[in-house]
Design a protein around this nucleic acid. Sequence first.
DNA 1: AGTAGGCCACTTTTT
DNA 2: GTGGCCTACT
Length: 788
Amino acid sequence: MLPFNEYNPIGMDPRSLLNEQQVDAVTVEGGATLVLAGPGSGKTRVLTHRIAHLINEMKVPPQRILAVTFTNKAANEMKKRLEKMVPEGAKSVWLGTFHSICVRILRREARYLPVDANFTIYDVDDQVALLKSIIKDLNLNDKLYHAGGIQETISRAKNEMIMPGQYNVRTSRDAKIQEIYERYQAGLRASNAMDFDDLLLTALSLLYEREEVREYYAARFEHVLIDEFQDTNQIQYELVRLLSSVHNNLFVVGDEDQSIYRWRGADYRNVLRFEEDYGDFRKILLEQNYRSTQNVLDTARAVIDQNQYRTPKALFTKRGNGNLIRFYNAEDDRDEADYVVRTIQTEIKKGANPASFAVMYRMNSQSRMLEEAFMKAGIPYRLVGAQRFYGRREVKDVIAFLRLVHNPKDEVSIRRVINVPPRKIGDKSVEKLREVTRLMESNLGNVLIELGTRGPESEIYAALDRSAASIYQFAKIMAGWIEIKDTVSLPDLFDRILMDVEYREYLQDGSEEEVIDRWGNVQELRRQAFEFEELGLASLLENLALVSDQDTISEKLESPTLLTLHAAKGLEFDRVFIIGLDDGLLPHNRSFEEEEEMAEERRLFYVGITRARDQLYLARAGRRNMFGSYEYQLPSRFLKDVPDELVEMENTFRSSTQNNYDRWERGSYRRDTNRYQSNRKDSFFEEWDRKSTKSRTWDELRENQDRKNNNSGHAPILPSKSDAPTREKKSEATYKVGMKIKHPTFGEGMVLNVHLEGDGEETLEIFFAELKQQKKLAASFIKLDIVE
DNA sequence: AGTAGGCCACTTTTT
DNA sequence: GTGGCCTACT
């Protein structure tokens, strides 16, 4: 027996002492264990301590432990902590994401696979590129068969373990999609490539079909630990089940309230399934929060309590109430960004650490306005994700070259760079090359290598006809790289490639600034090539494919962090801004139709709130610049659930938000109408119609609201009529969202949306009650009477 | 084959 | 506002 309350592995800092529940979790014996861990309850700590405990106390060999995390970042973090606790064994533990673990297994067992061990991992861009070429080959309309949409469809199918042959065909379109899917899979095989979904799916079928493989891994992994279990999908659940099937020592940690990846196939009901599948499992609840103040926790709880179908949790902290939540009602998105930067600037002057701030938002596109504001203020910031680096043209080019060297069959990469820099190889030539390849019953890579090695001697050269010279030019340098790849170091290979294709010269067009920027990105890749000198090209490419942007955040940089709410999962900051609390943004429009999606948006907000240690800032904008014109925004419905008494207002409300608020309050978004029908617009206007027949209802509601605001001792979180100064701006639209108008021919209608163009021209979206139809009108074009 | 200019779709979220 | 893509011209 261990000294429970003083459990303290060798050399531990006393701060990392564990509470009783944590000790239970860390030291629980084998078998199935489910740890339900609220935010900030120290689950990463529990996981690392448990691994250390298994190795140090239970004498489990480290290589017999499998630990799966959700992101590479989390894996690296855990690895780092583990190395301090288990200096010897940490490296031998199998620790990584589902995807990286699967890659590891697949490379080891490549002899069973339809690809060889050098297979390339296709990311979404590669998938779309492949699909586009297939759609073109099939002579299909690329508007009707949109590659991006089909990629999603195929991904969904794979997540449900539906292969092309089993694809449910009900319409002629389905039949086409099935055909595309089939060709897509064939294309992957021909390119010696796997997409993200294949990594999981292939590993699973390998374990299913090859008993000896399954037994090897299941017997090997004495202990299996899974983090973020609520975000596992069906395939991952099966993988876990198989990998732990011999020893049955399965330890999973999760929190259904933090499940935010449903759209990717994650199913938090896996937690319930776990309880069913493992009858004698033990359940441990971690409810003490070590992160946030009580005010933050109360806010989080008030928000998440509105979700049905969840286990209520009693999160508590010993940290005290702390500061109130601050709420800023911005006029527009620029104002919102300025507020964030202004506030951060003030706090930094007062001595706050710049790195203690994070700004979180729903969509990556929201970062642009923030970046501008930060730059204007001269404050450095770090941006997480957002295709910052790996999405760049030059980065993708160079990676494609490297991928080609490693796997010459990779058709997507060949197509990408065969004409970079331009060497007179257009579509016609690529077609010719494919044709020749088909005739030879070979693959693009081999054909190119042979052409490159044997040159004009080879029959390929003759067959290529007029395209031969330019393709040979490329094939020659490519064959050269492949020849030297095993004898020179990775950085040397890298430099050789850039030199051979004269990539730097190629980048020279464009503005000077751009050239510096692009070349800088290439240099960053070069730096990584040095970093992976020992591990080799395969590791570098795997890392590039799997790690991507998330890991780019350098921890040394002492700056505020800008990131999406999704990217924020698992992180914590002293001060957290959540911006864009507009209805349609958070919750996002696309979640309006389905209750479960709306619940997920709420969890996303919950995740954001619970990242804050000390101070939470919330903000919304009444008007937002989207696609070049302004869109008026309603406050997020979630704001209604933030308790008034926990909120301190940063500003009073402007008149421009008044109408929005009225409409919001008028019923369409009321919390008690807690049903989200499939056709929201209809139900909304049915309700609107009912109300408009006796318009006093609206006045009543407005009065009620005013009374409520005046009586409550706290600042209201939403605008009320009474504290709105009457100030009109010139740039203001004449019509506002929620206005009732009368059109000479269409009759009465309600303004749904106002786009304010740069030249002051207003475009209106109006729903006409009589027509039961929505129309787009230019305001200057017609005379509209404002009814109300 | 390459490129300039115009059109239009785009914005969820990520391994 | 912008990047990707198509078309028409060189």
